[in-house]
């Protein structure tokens, strides 16, 4: 489905993360099954899968809608975000010299898409926890679950990330980890890290920029635990 969609859009498109997340989700659920109570797990697993499918559908509809909205756009003078502010942020980098007039225009639209996607993914986590208030830790969850948002890990406090990681593990599964105060991002031997082939980004053409946080391996290790519902 996703491939067809991108086939229509253009040849240079790569697989999107949300669809590749599904296999990982299933794998994680299976592994968690070995550690948690069967009945409790079944409920979490079903809810989690439904939530993931819902998110995938919402994202697909979102991108289709973007094309439709842009094709209907007739007023290019009203931007959702002020161009002067965008330009100022771009210029905050001292290496940036000159900016064409169209660059902030493109960014205005791109940032709108960015806010919408990040909000959609964050709200997905809010619903997983049966809340109606979007919180900071929902954004943290969206960031950890989406590869293209890796550059935001420094924006989201570790406390929120820790809550997300620990919260996603069913209580009683790894009490020693919480009690022992393992270093952030460290998973005890009992919870074996799992390779995530499905999480690989399909971007062979260009080298993925080096992650200054050096945390990519940790994210991959943590990824399997994300789908579990908070208790």
């Amino acid at each position: 489905m996703d491939q067809q969609d991108h086939g229509q859009s253009g040849a240079m498109n790569y697989g999107t993360n949300p669809y590749q997340t599904n296999p990982m989700s299933t794998t994680a659920a299976t592994v968690a099954g070995g550690a948690a109570q069967p009945g409790q797990l079944a409920f979490h697993q079903i809810h989690q899968q439904q939530q993931q499918q819902q998110l995938a559908q919402q994202l697909q509809a979102f991108w289709e809608n973007q094309f439709k909205e842009i094709e209907k756009t007739t007023d290019f003078k009203n931007h959702s975000l002020p161009l002067a502010r965008i330009k100022k942020i771009m210029k905050a980098d001292e290496d940036v010299r000159m900016i064409s007039a169209e660059a902030p225009v493109v960014f205005a639209r791109a940032c709108e898409m960015f806010i919408l996607e990040l909000t959609l993914r964050s709200w997905n986590h809010t619903e997983e926890n049966k809340r109606r208030t979007l919180q900071k830790n929902d954004i943290a969850a969206a960031v950890t679950r989406t590869d293209i948002f890796d550059f935001l890990v420094d924006i989201v406090p570790r406390e929120d990330l820790r809550d997300e990681v620990l919260g996603s593990i069913p209580r009683g599964t790894v009490p020693e980890a919480a009690a022992a105060g393992y270093p952030y991002g460290y998973l005890p031997a009992g919870t074996a890290p799992i390779g995530n082939p499905g999480m690989v980004m399909g971007n062979p053409g260009g080298a993925y920029p080096p992650n200054p946080y050096m945390g990519q391996p940790m994210w991959q290790q943590q990824a399997p635990d994300q789908p579990d519902q908070e208790n």
Partner: peptide, 11 residues
Amino acid sequence: KLGFDNYVDPL
């Protein structure tokens, strides 16, 4: 290049 492929076509 940074992985925001979905954004490029609409933009």
